[in-house]
Design a protein around this nucleic acid. Sequence first.
DNA 1: CGACACATGTAACACGTTACATGATTTG
DNA 2: CAAATCATGTAACGTGTTACATGTGTCG
Lengths: 197, 197
Amino acid sequence: MSVRNALLALLEQGPRYGYQLRAEFEDRTGGTWPLNVGQVYTTLARLERDGLVEGKGEDGDGHVVYAVTARGREEVVAWFSSPVPRTQPPREELAIKLALAVSVPAVDVGTVIQQQRSATMAALQDYTRLKRRATGDDPHELAWGLVLDSLVFNAEAEIRWLDHCEARLRRAASERDGRASASVETAETTSSQEVAR
Amino acid sequence: MSVRNALLALLEQGPRYGYQLRAEFEDRTGGTWPLNVGQVYTTLARLERDGLVEGKGEDGDGHVVYAVTARGREEVVAWFSSPVPRTQPPREELAIKLALAVSVPAVDVGTVIQQQRSATMAALQDYTRLKRRATGDDPHELAWGLVLDSLVFNAEAEIRWLDHCEARLRRAASERDGRASASVETAETTSSQEVAR
DNA sequence: CGACACATGTAACACGTTACATGATTTG
DNA sequence: CAAATCATGTAACGTGTTACATGTGTCG
């Protein structure tokens, strides 16, 4: 629904045509989420089908312009005034992956974690580099800056979580070892998983 | 691709049938992401179409069992040994929403933020409550515990980001005001946006 | 002229999701 | 017996995504 709602919100500012909508969307997100033009047109068609926007034919420059309808305006308001639904939080691929990794013995969880952390830290650096631009004060750059910050905050949380997982697994492993042999807390990081099988 | 990959990973542990796959998936995620059975069957069909699993007909109990193929096993290994792709990070609805809110004048960003924060904090409490269970040591509960932690870390990051956005917006607003009138830093929280229009 | 950006669209497909149909088995 | 759970599937639809076709205008 993101694209759909975003386009609707952009149209709320006034009639636009397809290409223009893509440009504005990417402006506000600094190209973080490139938007295929094709999708703009298909989405516009679906919005029109659902009675949320209305094709206004061609304007003076020969552009096919769309405008939001009354029902569409209601939807925008509803979108902005309700929180992002967390009833069923979006399936997070990484969480699912680790959840399965810890219970599928043939996989070395330690490696998965380490390598994910590298990737995430690399991404974090990219974001920081990008952040040096995007510090202006006009709404566009403000928006982009916030989007970037969001990515940063998420990446940081991801790294913290990965660290946390590592520690938790190490603890679980040493407890298991503790019950079996009489090994100590030293527990090499790499040996957290390939115990079973 | 999450469901698809997850099912493949589960099958890597040995042949399973549809219903069983759903049960194991929900076990490992503590029902965080309920999985409609129908989707298991459609996904299995698609996996078979792509040659990653193979229907083994009925077993002794009359269950339609599927097994992973050689190509399927390769895919699982590839999945686990490559980081979650961040080439084009998943569109985050919340970030998009705020990015648009700050540049669509008719919206009061402050309200959007506050109300999102309430919702997220409520979710956070739910997670903490759930967390009191799911502290066992067997792989299942371990997995679920980590998934829950992931949700917690993400929610916390979201709240931090929302706070950050508020501060950033207040700064921008006061700079704007500063240039126009000679208002002070006191800046009521609620007045960050409804300046324009 | 040729390359490139602008501009509009269509077709096809991927995954996810729900609703429904159908039947066997278990359990209160 | 009735209700619930187990179990397998299908049909239909939603969004997102890509690839392609097509044409105009601009600029080196």
